[in-house]
Design a protein around this nucleic acid. Structure first.
Length: 291
DNA sequence: ATGTCAGCCGGAGGCTGA
């Protein structure tokens, strides 16, 4: 049984107390839909939620245009993979980052480790957290636009590449978190109206099969592990007043390796930023790992 | 299916992607 912080504080003092407190690592994922348009929202959220690691998606800016100073001033080290106008992913970490990898390998060129994809949708790094090492990735899976379109095939191919890559990564038996906007709701409970959504993008059988395949490799959907029967969404369409009408889906996920999920103490989707002025259409998902 | 939003080009509003 993991002792509560109060119990630890009662037992410990001085520097030891600090070390134990620091062994909690909080990780969040958030599709911000333009880091520049959302800067004040994100900084305000970090003010009250000073997470250790923040995985961002949909930066919508080039790497050099990322507002790095605002994050560095708040103690974050940055690994950014941006591009003009579209996509873009980043890892913000209060702990040092190493071995940054930008982009997923193409399946056809895996042996050479070549990166051909022009879309900035994946970044991975090793984080030196207190008392250990954690691999994290920020992924922005393609939306797919319409079933049967080229973009839908690209989405399925991207999920296949993610599978192939994590099949290799999980063989390393690391503590790892693959977070991001997957643009896939895993189960019927994860959409507001499964009958209406069945067969559409975000809830198509082929996408869901690929997400399940990822889980079958040995990744665990942190939210569902801690909240087996809760319906809560992480995204609501701007169109049609989706948030006000409760029409949404849970498509943003923190997938944890077995070693990480064994240390998982808490997971929550924070809806509050979605109800504020000029929000992202996504809400952040946050988890806490205790070492 | 769509009651919205962001960025681009270019200098207004239509287009793309979500």
């Amino acid at each position: 049984m993991i002792p509560t912080k109060k119990q630890l504080d009662a037992r410990l003092s001085g520097n030891t107390k600090f070390c134990i407190a620091a062994a909690m690592t909080t990780i969040a994922t958030w599709n911000v839909n333009s880091v520049k348009a959302r800067l004040s929202n994100v900084l305000a959220w970090l003010e009250s939620n000073p997470v250790d690691i923040l995985l961002l998606q949909e930066l919508k800016c080039e790497t050099d245009a990322f507002p790095a100073m605002e994050f560095e001033d708040r103690g974050y080290n940055l690994a950014i993979h941006g591009q003009k106008t579209y996509n873009g992913v980043a890892i913000c970490s209060k702990f040092p980052l190493e071995d940054v990898m930008r982009g997923l390998p193409e399946i056809s060129s895996r042996l050479r480790g070549e990166e051909v994809d022009a879309q900035a949708r994946y970044i991975e790094a090793l984080v030196n957290i207190p008392n250990g090492v954690l691999r994290v990735a920020s992924a922005y899976i393609p939306n797919g636009q319409e079933v049967g379109s080229d973009k839908f095939l690209y989405k399925l191919n991207f999920l296949d590449r993610l599978y192939a890559h994590w099949q290799e990564r999980l063989a390393w038996n690391e503590m790892a978190v693959l977070g991001g906007d997957f643009n896939v709701a895993p189960e019927a409970i994860d959409v507001h109206d499964p009958k209406a959504w069945e067969g559409n993008i975000l809830f198509h059988p082929e996408e869901r099969a690929r997400l399940r395949a990822l889980l079958h490799l040995g990744l665990y959907d942190a939210f569902r592990v801690k909240h087996p029967t809760t319906q809560q969404f992480s995204w609501w369409d701007y169109r049609g007043g989706g948030y006000e009408r409760g029409i949404g889906a849970r498509i943003d996920h923190l997938l944890l390796s077995g070693i990480a999920v064994d240390k998982l103490s808490d997971v929550a989707i924070d809806e509050s930023p979605r109800g504020q002025e000029k929000p992202s259409d996504h809400a952040p998902v946050v988890c806490t790992i205790t070492l």
